[in-house]
């Protein structure tokens, strides 16, 4: 599959392009070229490492939206055995922007729910680019309550630009659906663990992410508004998105410092899309750690811990 390069990855694209050319001409037997290939490989890796060590918030925004970044379906396929998708909000429709179902995560029965961006043109349209309507949030609430009834932990995987801004979505009560989603998250008496995989877009993300533990991939973003929306509202110029991304403090490192997220999961050099398997495994390990820590806690205490955590986000320094 052809690598998709982001605009700031141009130097890498050139190096890797040259590398591929050399590899094709060499055919693997010319020893002199093999040395060159090794050297070029080292150089490409080094520049990738340097570049990714200090990504700006806007660059991270681009990485978080990379088309090849692993999505919900990739995580579920690799981490959840016997995954059985469940559909519908039992009121109006099945919104495929949020998927969910039962499965076994490393030996434990769990409920997995997440924004599903889909892949390819058809897939993206089918899943509405991961932008959920009220039916999606209501499905999530239904599945969370189902998990609670059977004492199963809930995992939510967050990857959305935001809730869908459309006529039908408003008509069916988008705001109410999100509010009930948050309400449900904060009421559950089973462990709730969330991972921000790519984009954590505003209310559409927090609706299923008010968790006991909220984790975030290193280059994911979690934001009160998209940099573009923020730029057009506060700067009255959408092209100021870069500045807005800087100002919003939307990176994993910033949010760990602000105690909005509890843990950052490191990504492979060059971002999750370069080594999806390793990324997914790292996310799996982090979820396992969280579940181990949470599964022994009494139901009431679990709920209170979660509520306390959010009540304490008041901007005041705590030891």
């Amino acid at each position: 599959m052809a690598q998709t390069y982001l605009d700031f990855e141009k130097p890498i694209a050139e190096l890797e392009g040259k590398l591929r050319e050399l590899e094709q001409t060499a055919g693997g037997n010319d020893i002199n070229i093999a040395d060159d290939i090794q050297r070029l490989k080292g150089k490409a890796e080094q520049s990738l490492r340097t570049l990714y060590a200090k990504l700006t918030p806007w660059q991270k925004t681009q990485v978080a939206r990379h088309p090849d970044r692993p999505h919900f379906e990739d995580y579920v396929a690799a981490l959840v055995a016997d995954f059985t998708a469940l559909a519908g909000d039992r009121a109006f429709a099945d919104d495929q922007a949020i998927s969910g179902g039962l499965g076994r995560f490393r030996g434990r029965s769990v409920m997995v729910i997440g924004h599903d961006k889909g892949r390819g043109t058809d897939g993206r349209i089918k899943h509405n680019f991961g932008m959920a309507r009220p039916e999606g949030y209501r499905k999530a609430v239904r599945l969370m309550r189902l998990a609670e009834r059977f004492g199963l932990p809930v995992l939510t995987l967050i990857d959305t630009a935001g809730a869908y801004p459309g006529i039908d979505a408003e008509e069916h009560g988008q705001a109410e659906a999100i509010a009930r989603g948050i309400d449900c998250c904060l009421d559950l008496k089973v462990p709730l663990v969330s991972v921000i995989l790519g984009e954590g877009g505003s209310g559409g993300a927090v609706a299923i992410a008010a968790a006991n533990q909220t984790m975030m991939l290193e280059h994911a973003i979690y934001s009160v508004a998209s940099p573009e929306a923020c730029a057009s509202i506060l700067w009255h110029a959408a092209e100021k998105a870069r500045e807005a991304a800087d100002a919003l403090k939307l990176t994993a490192a910033d949010l760990l410092a602000l105690k909005v997220v509890d843990r950052v999961i490191a990504e492979p050099v060059g971002g999750a899309h370069r080594q999806p398997e390793r990324t997914i495994a790292a996310v799996g390990d982090a979820i396992e750690d969280s579940l181990k820590a949470l599964c022994g806690i009494a139901p009431e205490a679990l709920r209170e811990q979660r509520r306390r955590k959010f009540l304490d986000i008041d901007g005041r320094a705590r030891p």
Partner: peptide
């Protein structure tokens, strides 16, 4: 809506106020 100038701390007031409702 949320006060953008306070970044994610303002978004987090959504779950925070919901706990108060509960």
């Amino acid at each position: 809506g949320a006060r953008m100038q306070e970044g994610m701390l303002s978004l987090m007031q959504m779950p925070r106020t919901v706990v108060a409702v509960q």
